[in-house]
Structure formats: C-alpha cells, structure tokens
Computed example of a mutant assay.
Amino acid sequence: MPTAQLSNGIHLAYDDHVGRGGHDDPDIDPAVPLVLVHGHPFDRSLWHPQVAALAGTHRVITFDLRGYGDSAAPSTPPVTDFGDFARDLEALLDHLGVARCALGGVSMGGQIAMDAYARFPERIAGLLLADTSPAVDTEAGKAFRRETAERLLAEGMKGYADEVLHKMAAAYNPEAAAHVLRMMLAAPPQGAAAALRARADRPDYSQVLPKVTVPSLVVVGRDDTYTPVADAEAMHAAIPDSRLTVIERAAHLPNLERPEEFNAAVRDWLARLT
C-alpha cells in the first residue's frame, strides 16, 4: 500500500493499478489514467469491482480521501474546507506525474470531481459523475450535516451506519450492502465528521456543469433516494457532451450493487476519450 507525502504536506494512501506488465505494459492505455474518488463515509475499496474489471486495459488510480481509510494518519489534519479534497487530488496527480486524467466520483466523490473540474479543468480529459448532485444544501440540510458530525464524534459510526445502510445499498443487493457496512464501520469518526462539516459549506457546482467541455458520463441507480434519477437527468441536460445511464435494481452505489452494468457504461465512456 503506497502512501504519499504530497507537496501540500498531506499524507494519502493510494493504489496505482497499471496491469501485470506495469507502466510499460503494451496492453495498457497510458495516455489517460482513470482516477476514482470514493464518497462518504467509505474508502478506496469502494472501487474494487472497477479495478478488477478495468485495470487490465487502463491505468486505474484509487485513493483514500483525507480523514478516511489509510489516509487518516494522526499527522494529517482533517479538512476544514471542501476544496481541500480537490487540492489533495491535484497534489496526488503531481506526485504520480499524471498530467491529465479521466476523473470519476460517486456521491461526495462526484462533488469533489466537480470541484476539481472547476479548479483545474485542463487536467481532466473526461468526467464521470455517479449518484451525486451539484446543488448546495438547504439550511436544514446544512444543519443536519453539522448535527450528524457531532453525533459521529460522540457515538461513533455504528448507529449512523445502521440507519443509512438501506439507502446506500438496497436490501436486494446483500453482498454490496455488507461491503458498504464494513467501510462505514471502519471509517474514522473524526475524518467523517470533518468532511460533513466541510461539505455543508461547499459551493454550488450548478454553474460548473454547463462549462464542462470534455466527454462526461452521468450514472444513477434507479432506486437512489439520496440523489434520485431526476437529479441525474438535470445534470445530464446541463453538461453539453454527456450521456446518462440509469442502472436498474441499484440504490446509491451502483458501482458496487450492479458492477457489470456500471463497468460497461464506464468502458463506453473511456472509449470516447480516445
């Protein structure tokens, strides 16, 4: 498990999957690595089905966000601004020598991807937005995130995880739900709470979407109640060069719940980038 000390002083754990032959493998497209950003409160293992399916033909980079997974080092301060996540991502790209990438994220990870596009669009060759939303929270939503942050610090992750599990992964996808529960229970409360507070104050990305000039893919689970199909349709309508994939029998994490359908859509999107 590589861990990078980035130019901004932050330590991030990551995996750089480059196929059996390494960076010189002739079967790997080296031009546009695929970088995947997990959501809250997960870790990079969220992307295991995509790594397994895509790393034979593409360089795939996954990492733990600051405060999550193996990036929750005591020496690494938690985020205080939502933009910290995108700044960490840019520093990781610098560390790995990646000039340009295909960038994807799910849920909060999708919002980080939008934030990254707003900050350094020249480094993004394609955008994948899964089960996410560009809009800011309502005042009630902001208050709920802050209250949840305090609850996680006081009680830990279990009560919260038990309450939201059925929304993250539908009950008819038990293997995915078990994976999701493991990630949530392993999430450090301090990192998760810091992310919730920062996310409550994130900017509105609605004005970013019409400016996206790269091939984009919007994906949503048919049964997602956090970011429903209507939200995905609105994002698809706002992004000039985008395609929409609605995945049946999936809730908030279709990449885990229905990986074959999700991976097929991602492969089609990656083919458009070449």
Rank of each mutant, 00 (worst) to 15 (best):
G126C: 10
V32E: 06
E257P: 07
P121I: 04
K142I: 12
S75I: 11
L6T: 02
P189Q: 08
E248L: 00
G69T: 09
L92A: 00
P26V: 04
C101L: 08
G83W: 04
I124W: 01
L152D: 07
R66G: 10
L46C: 02
G21W: 13
A143Q: 12
M114H: 10
R197T: 07
G105T: 08
G110M: 05
R243K: 14
A130T: 14
L217I: 11
V214Q: 06
M1N: 13
L256Q: 06
E248N: 04
S45C: 15
R243M: 05
F42E: 14
R202S: 13
A125Q: 12
D70G: 01
E90N: 13
A116H: 00
F82A: 11
G69D: 13
F63M: 10
D29G: 13
A4N: 07
R145V: 10
E150H: 06
A186K: 14
P41R: 09
I124Y: 01
D131V: 01
Y68Q: 11
G141Q: 14
A143L: 11
S107E: 05
L270K: 12
T76E: 07
D24Q: 15
A178N: 04
P215G: 13
T80G: 05
R258F: 00
G69F: 14
A250H: 02
V266H: 08
A140W: 04
A192R: 08
G109D: 07
G22M: 04
E248F: 02
A72T: 14
L93A: 14
H23Y: 11
K142H: 10
R123Q: 00
H48C: 02
H179I: 02
D241F: 15
D241G: 05
S7I: 12
T3F: 06
G156C: 03
R151E: 00
P33A: 07
A143E: 15
Y117R: 05
L89V: 06
V98F: 06
H40D: 11
V219G: 06
D81E: 13
E90K: 04
V229S: 01
K211F: 01
G126N: 12
D137H: 14
P240W: 01
D162F: 02
R20C: 03
A154K: 10
Y226I: 14
A192H: 12
P77R: 13
Y205L: 10
A237I: 03
H252I: 13
G56V: 01
L12I: 12
R146M: 08
P30I: 07
R100C: 03
A177R: 02
A113E: 04
V35H: 03
A238M: 03
